[in-house]
């Protein structure tokens, strides 16, 4: 009996047949932002190593990070950081078994997207002012 229907069993429905929902969107954004921040993490280490090496090397890497492309990566990563930060806290809260009802899931899913944009704008304002 052990080999009945082996290899012909139905597979779990593929992701493409589901309508995207706020919880699936925030889930995949959390993963994408986490992976995407690898680039900024390596750049920051390079920047610190340059600072530990010499003033001229620091100026070179610092100039790269503040070029238009560098700033694009830095500000993009800042938003990724805030989103992942808020998404991570939400995950930690949900690990306690709370916030699983549909109303909370929908509300907090949208809330972390809006909050991440507000925090990004606020921190860019602070960084450019001080």
């Amino acid at each position: 009996m052990a080999d009945v229907n082996r290899g012909k069993r139905p597979l779990s429905p593929h992701i493409s047949i589901y309508r995207p929902q706020i919880n699936s969107i925030t889930s995949i954004i959390n993963r994408i932002t986490g992976v995407a921040m690898s680039l900024a993490a390596v750049l920051i280490v390079w920047w610190l190593l340059a600072a530990a090496t010499s003033a001229s090397y620091f100026d070179f890497v610092n100039g790269l990070l503040t070029s238009w492309f560098g700033l694009l990566v830095m500000f993009g990563s800042l938003w990724a950081l805030w989103f992942h930060f808020l998404g991570g806290i939400r995950h930690l809260v949900m690990d306690f078994g709370v916030g699983y009802d549909i109303k909370s899931v929908d509300f907090w899913g949208k809330a972390i997207i809006v909050l991440s944009l507000i925090l990004t704008a606020a921190s860019i304002y602070c960084l450019s002012t001080f």
């Binding site: 620091f58 610092n62 990070l65 503040t66 991570g88 921190s123 960084l127």
Partner: peptide, 21 residues
């Protein structure tokens, strides 16, 4: 990483684009 990220954004992020000194 929750408090450490905030410390980094507060203390280190503003140094990007600043001087070596």
């Amino acid at each position: 990483l929750i408090p450490l990220t905030l410390c980094f954004l507060w203390k280190v992020a503003p140094l990007i684009g600043g001087t070596h000194a």
